[in-house]
Nucleic acid binder design. Sequence first.
DNA 1: TAAGTATAGTTGTCTATACCAATTGAAGAA
DNA 2: TTCTTCAATTGGTATAGACAACTATACTTA
Lengths: 240, 240
Amino acid sequence: MIDKHSPMPIYFQLEHSIRQQIENGELTPGNLLPSEREYAELLDVSRMTVRQAITNLVNEGLLYRQKGRGTFVAEQKLEQKLSGLTSFTEDMKARGMTPANTLLAFEIIPADAKVAERLSLKEHTPVYEIKRIRLADDVPMALETVYISANLVKGLTETITAASLYHYIEEELGLAIGHAVQSIEAAIVNEIERPHLLVQKGAPVLLIERNTFLKDGTPLEYVKSSYRADRYKFTIDINR
Amino acid sequence: MIDKHSPMPIYFQLEHSIRQQIENGELTPGNLLPSEREYAELLDVSRMTVRQAITNLVNEGLLYRQKGRGTFVAEQKLEQKLSGLTSFTEDMKARGMTPANTLLAFEIIPADAKVAERLSLKEHTPVYEIKRIRLADDVPMALETVYISANLVKGLTETITAASLYHYIEEELGLAIGHAVQSIEAAIVNEIERPHLLVQKGAPVLLIERNTFLKDGTPLEYVKSSYRADRYKFTIDINR
DNA sequence: TAAGTATAGTTGTCTATACCAATTGAAGAA
DNA sequence: TTCTTCAATTGGTATAGACAACTATACTTA
């Protein structure tokens, strides 16, 4: 299984071997892997070498580690429709999962440079900042931060944000969204996001989706959503 | 700068310190960092600890390493328009960069299960497989693999693919694209892709874009493009 | 001059060990 | 039964050192 005299590094060979076992179905999502010490003894290599192999697979999202418990095979990716204007809530329901939110923060703050630019406001203009964790079947899926100009939308309450914010804006305030600018990039999770998002210390790669919703050319709402890249894939349908 | 008795791990403190120096402009793209051994001696920690900090920043795309030379600060991200149907060539020109392609492979192969599904063909149906490296100002930006049913598009030659494949299909063959299905996900670069894509051993995170182009509901072409996540960001404009 | 050769410095891989922190389960106490 | 304690096991962090592979430079040789 592992050839110490191969030109390929040992950690690379082990990495490949585990990857194949997952593809073959010998290891399936949720399965517990041998511990790092077991691998080390089994293959007669150093534990640090085993760690390097496993770390790479954790970074890829194929495995996740839990201190004191072990290393496990991760779940498959979900698909996130990039339709632009569908809500997390609807997407999850369409998959037969139960969506939920946890409100982390709800406050009025002065806009910093980035937020101000996104919303075409001057810096320090007061904006609502709403931070939420998005859950599907009680598993954290995304971290979402919403910015809305406080002058545009007055009287926002925590009760409302607990429900769908998008629907509140569209239906209650009658501000139909006509246009959106969206971007997607990849990033590594930082230590501030990690505890909120990754109960089980999962893969560190995030897909960051930024939406600016416009009405008649005026930015209304800026939303930054950080999805776990090991659980998400964005899809989009284009007609023309 | 580094506090050995802090509750935060040493590698994390160093990571944070370097990140700040990049933000402050004390370190700018292209700059050579102190070597791992220098950091180790300077901070009186083990070289492996320094490596852990730097590895994390390399994964994030902030730094890149070159064996035998050193560790450098990486360039900023570019933006990749997710308009769905614009070509790499056009996007690069719009940025004032010179696009180019390197043809890696051009052959007719039997479709495997995944490709067959994407193109709604039976497995083992012959398809063109075209692999190209996409360059901007001679820097590898993306790895692209195109699959086209060999029965649908006969007489494809290497000369044509060296030019724009998209335009060939649309203009020469008169197959106007009417619809596309696109997905984006994040992944870690594997050792096969790495040498082609990352001359300077860059960040291992990739943004993988998959496009299936349809004509009257029939899949014509399936393209998988792997972009360096440290250089790319996808953007999209939605009107409705 | 041109080509080959040493050399010093860099990252890449690997070893062997140690202790810390979180989790689990079993043994023991209330 | 229920709770507490404790030991074992797991991953997390860190050390010190070794050799390989690669790069750039300076030097030697034909």
